[in-house]
């Protein structure tokens, strides 16, 4: 029983991270129909900024804030400088460009902070079966997810963002500044991604620290439905717990295989994820 409990709670903690990074993917996907492969690198750079601020000032929360700001800024810059030029270029070009950005940013991280792993603190004490640090991770992810949901469903800004995403032409005619909405979407998503990074990197940060987290986050988003924030959050937690069980009861080498199996099982039954919606056929 002790083992079951430990594995469940451990899985929930990693699941919170998958959910948060998955949420950042969903926000961008809803806005632009792009899967942002550069997301782990944006989060990585943000976390490294937190690392440097921590080192310089000795405080955790200043670094935390700096990371969120960095994430937001990087997101806005990515949209303005790069992604905007790719409008109407199909679904492949954004994949490749964000992959290129991933390489560049990981290389930059290696250049500035070296490939060696560095110690990166948790927000709170990490000891205990369900530690304050784990509790913080789960809580903050749930709060942010709720916030994003309220923003989308219940605020004028959210309404404008949805309009800009689904019918940019009509939204433009109605006076919505479509370009600005896209920038806001990327900024918000990258800030959420930075938060995911801050929760994911402890205890060690190194340039490839978020790669496997990203694969699991993408899996979570695909399982939940890429256009559905609630589904993605649920997918993230479910995947975290599921993989923790596989690792604990079957073997750690099977974790990636299990992720594949879960993904295939879900997609065979529901090709657009558990909670996703099929996009109407383009005519």
């Amino acid at each position: 029983m002790d083992k079951l409990l430990t594995l469940t709670l451990g899985g929930l903690t990693s699941g919170a991270v998958y959910a948060a990074l998955g949420l950042s993917l969903v926000i961008i996907f809803r806005a632009t129909r792009v899967v942002n492969f550069a997301q782990p690198a944006l989060a990585l750079i943000s976390a490294y900024v937190a690392f440097s601020v921590n080192k310089a000032t000795g405080g955790y929360w200043l670094g935390f804030a700096a990371a969120l700001l960095t994430g937001a800024l990087l997101g806005a810059l990515t949209e303005r400088l790069i992604m905007r030029r790719l409008a109407d270029r199909g679904h492949l070009a954004p994949v490749i460009v964000t992959l290129g950005l991933l390489m560049v940013l990981q290389a930059v991280a290696g250049m500035i902070w070296s490939a060696e792993p560095r110690s990166f603190p948790y927000a709170f004490d990490f000891r205990g079966t369900f530690s304050p640090a784990a509790g913080f991770a789960v809580a903050v992810v749930l709060v942010v997810a709720a916030g994003v949901l309220v923003l989308f469903k219940a605020t004028p800004l959210g309404l404008r963002m949805r309009a800009a995403a689904f019918r940019p032409d009509v939204a433009g005619l109605l006076g919505v500044r479509v370009g600005l909405m896209l920038t806001i979407g990327w900024t918000l998503a990258a800030a959420v991604g930075a938060l995911a990074g801050l929760l994911a990197v402890p205890p060690f940060i190194y340039p490839t620290a978020l790669d496997s987290v990203f694969v699991h986050a993408l899996a979570a988003a695909v399982i939940g439905g890429l256009d559905n924030p609630v589904g993605t959050i649920a997918g993230g937690f479910a995947l975290g717990v599921g993989l923790s069980f596989v690792s604990g009861y079957v073997g750690p080498e099977l974790v990636t295989m299990a992720a594949l199996a879960i993904l295939v099982a879900v997609l065979v039954v529901r090709p657009h994820g558990l909670f996703g919606h099929a996009v109407a056929r383009r005519v």
């Binding site: 694969v215 993408l218 990636t256």
Partner: peptide, 25 residues
């Protein structure tokens, strides 16, 4: 066959990550 766009991308990426680990088994 029934998957499109990013869902296919996610599934095939999971294949690339998952399949080589069969060597560990």
């Amino acid at each position: 066959a029934r998957l499109t766009g990013p869902y296919l991308a996610g599934a095939t990426l999971a294949l690339a990550v998952g399949l080589p680990s069969v060597t560990q088994r």
